[in-house]
């Protein structure tokens, strides 16, 4: 059995080679996969990695998809760094979207253009509150956050279905479970006409910088990391684990809620029974793939966005079934994770 040996320091060489290795593995397995399906491997790989980026609109769509993934992943990275196992970003995203939608529905035709700011604030509060439930139950009752955050994700999804079927249903919508479309003032302005990209991406970049500073420079960020890695040491130093639980969960909830708000007040423009295609779950992969580092999360979110869109394109361009895209995505992620190992470890055979 091969044996892993920790490198004294992460290998700089492997740092550069790892992505190449991952790409190489993906190309090898992808080639086999596409050949087995009777498709040209070149065309298959191209549709995942090149076609989505061929047009400016393509770039804007990748950017649009990155925003929710990145925001949720940043929040999750904070949680995981402090050893808080929140896997309910999906629920926090959805409830953030619900709260933002609720605010947006109150807008009225004469609302000032800046109204969308309140909508976004609503989303943040919604996500915060939902994560706050998890934090409260963890803090007060010691209830495991994995379970609570996951269960609350299901509850959040049902709450959304309830609202769009009942109180918030569009009265002119022939009873379909959709809210009315939001007034213009409630919508996040488009960044450039002709694309669906909104100022949300700028906001995401600002958030990215803020989270970065928070983690790298702030005292609270440092305390979080210490409390997460060495709870005992933290206690001696006077840092509280409770603080870590509350702070990381609330921050994650706020970010996921913001992402939900940007989605409903951005490309969606109304509340629908399904506002997330699973961003909160995908963001868990993004957070780890990005090694819980804000910069790494950007890269990982980009890769995730790319293979999602590539998956759609492989269907319309090559006639591949959607199932294959799942196989391919899983393979790519496993290859990336594998390659990552060699940065921190050396393999010894014996």
């Amino acid at each position: 059995m091969p044996r892993l040996e920790a490198r004294p320091a992460p290998s700089p060489l492997m740092g550069y080679l790892a992505p190449v290795l991952a790409l190489g593995l993906t190309v090898v397995f992808g080639t086999l996969l596409f050949l087995a399906l009777g498709k040209s491997p070149v065309a298959g790989l191209r549709v995942f990695f090149v076609t989505p980026l061929e047009t400016l609109r393509g770039w804007s769509e990748v950017g649009l998809k990155m925003v929710p993934l990145l925001l949720c992943a940043l929040g999750l990275a904070i949680c995981y760094r402090s050893n808080v196992w929140n896997i309910g970003a999906e629920g926090q995203f959805v409830v953030g979207g619900i709260a933002a939608g609720g605010v947006a529905l109150l807008a009225g035709a004469d609302a000032p253009r800046a109204y969308f700011v309140i909508v976004l604030a609503g989303g943040i509060v919604g996500g915060l509150a939902w994560a706050g439930v998890t934090a409260f139950l963890r803090d007060r009752f010691n209830a495991n956050e994995i379970l609570v955050s996951l269960m609350l994700t299901y509850v959040g999804g049902l709450l959304l279905i309830y609202l769009v079927n009942g109180p918030w249903k569009d009265p002119k919508g022939f009873n379909f479970p959709y809210s009315k479309t939001f007034d213009a003032a409630a919508m996040v302005p488009r960044l450039f006409p002709g694309t669906r990209l909104t100022w949300g991406i700028v906001l995401a970049v600002v958030v990215l910088a803020a989270v970065w500073l928070f983690l790298a420079r702030s005292k609270a960020g440092f305390r979080l990391a210490v409390a997460g890695h060495a709870p005992l040491a933290a206690r001696f130093a006077g840092f509280s684990a409770r603080e870590g639980i509350w702070l990381s969960l609330l921050l994650c909830g706020a970010l996921a809620g913001l992402a939900g708000a940007l989605e409903v007040a951005g490309p969606l423009g109304q509340l629908t029974p399904q506002i997330s295609p699973g961003y909160g779950f995908a963001a868990i992969i993004v957070a780890w793939l990005g090694r819980l580092h804000p910069g790494g999360c950007v890269f990982a979110a980009f890769v995730m966005a790319l293979i999602y869109i590539g998956g759609e394109l492989s269907q319309s361009r090559l006639g591949l079934p959607a199932a294959i895209t799942g196989v391919f995505q899983g393979m790519l992620l496993l290859a990336l994770l594998t390659a990552d190992t060699f940065i921190h470890y050396r393999v010894r055979w014996r």
Partner: peptide, 30 residues
């Protein structure tokens, strides 16, 4: 740390590319 910095460069390059792409979108819309 090196490994991390590499991804940062990636990230920055991506950000620039995105902004460029988005800017470019304005003019050639018709």
């Amino acid at each position: 740390m090196r490994a991390v910095r590499r991804t940062l460069i990636h990230g920055a390059a991506l950000g620039v590319a995105l902004i460029l792409a988005a800017c470019g979108q304005e003019a050639p819309k018709p």
